[in-house]
């Protein structure tokens, strides 16, 4: 009988805690599939952030370390420098990476640390219940922008891929989305390439994954995916910013 669905080995057989309809579970699965396909689970060390995915070290079968809020790229740097032959990745949300940890991500990228960052951007703080993120869209209502995000009060959304792709140390930069099957397949390709770039020793690689938060957006999973497509993608255009043609 043909196997049509199988849990990737790199994903542990435990229930995940995410809200129904949350795309973190899919992103975890894509990473695990890539670890399986590249056969690198045994030599991979992941770094968990602070945020809704703070304990995704429970979900991956590879070695994992939990980092303080925003510090995952520094922690990953420490690990990678001790084990240059291993594969090191960070998994970070928009508050973690683009607010409190801006210095760490910019400098890990500018040093060209041979690590891979999976950056999940859902334009809101999920863990602390729906506050404004650096990536919150203009006019988007959050618990700390109850009248909508106003540029004159709250500034503008930060485009992480565009920012990091100006750095020479960042060699692979791509933005993907979770809003439909085709894009999910694209996301997997990007994640795989990012890991391959690291393994080839080229430099820092990052994949920004546009993602949803049905609970804090107050939308059904379907509506949330549509909202992502209609509102986030115009602000955060999909595609490769750097390293598309890198030989790996």
């Amino acid at each position: 009988m043909a196997v049509v669905f199988k849990r990737p080995h790199a994903l542990r057989d435990v229930p995940m805690h995410y809200c129904p309809g949350c795309t973190h579970g899919i992103i975890h699965r894509l990473i695990a599939e890539v670890l399986d396909e590249l056969d690198i689970e045994g030599k991979t060390i992941g770094v968990s952030p602070v945020g809704c995915t703070y304990n995704n070290y429970e979900y991956f079968n590879c070695d994992m370390q939990q980092a303080a809020h925003g510090r995952a790229p520094a922690v990953a740097t420490g690990i990678k420098r001790v084990h240059p032959d291993k594969v090191v990745f960070t998994y970070q949300g928009d508050g973690d990476l683009a607010a409190i940890g801006t210095a760490e991500i910019v400098h890990a990228a500018t040093r060209g640390e041979k690590i891979t960052t999976i950056f999940v951007n859902n334009a809101i703080y999920g863990m602390t219940s729906g506050q404004m993120a650096p990536t919150t869209l203009i006019n988007q209502v959050t618990t700390t922008t109850p009248y909508g995000r106003k540029p004159e009060l709250h500034g503008y959304p930060i485009r992480v891929c565009e920012l990091l792709s100006t750095l020479d140390g960042a060699v692979f930069v791509e933005r993907v989305s979770m809003h439909d099957i085709k894009n999910i397949m694209n996301a997997k390709k990007a994640i795989k390439k990012a890991f391959q770039v690291q393994i080839a020793g080229k430099g820092f690689s990052i994949v920004e994954v546009l993602s949803t938060c049905p609970t804090n957006w107050g939308k059904s999973p379907d509506e949330a995916l549509k909202w992502l497509k209609d509102n986030m993608i115009p602000m955060y255009p999909l595609g490769n910013f750097k390293g598309k043609d890198l030989e790996v």
Partner: peptide, 24 residues
């Protein structure tokens, strides 16, 4: 060995955290 001039003391101690966790 590895010497890194980190971007901040905060990054430096977190690199220590990572490297110590990695067994160094």
């Amino acid at each position: 060995g590895t010497f890194i001039q980190a971007e901040s003391e905060i990054a430096a101690i977190n690199m220590v955290y990572g490297a110590a966790g990695a067994g160094a």
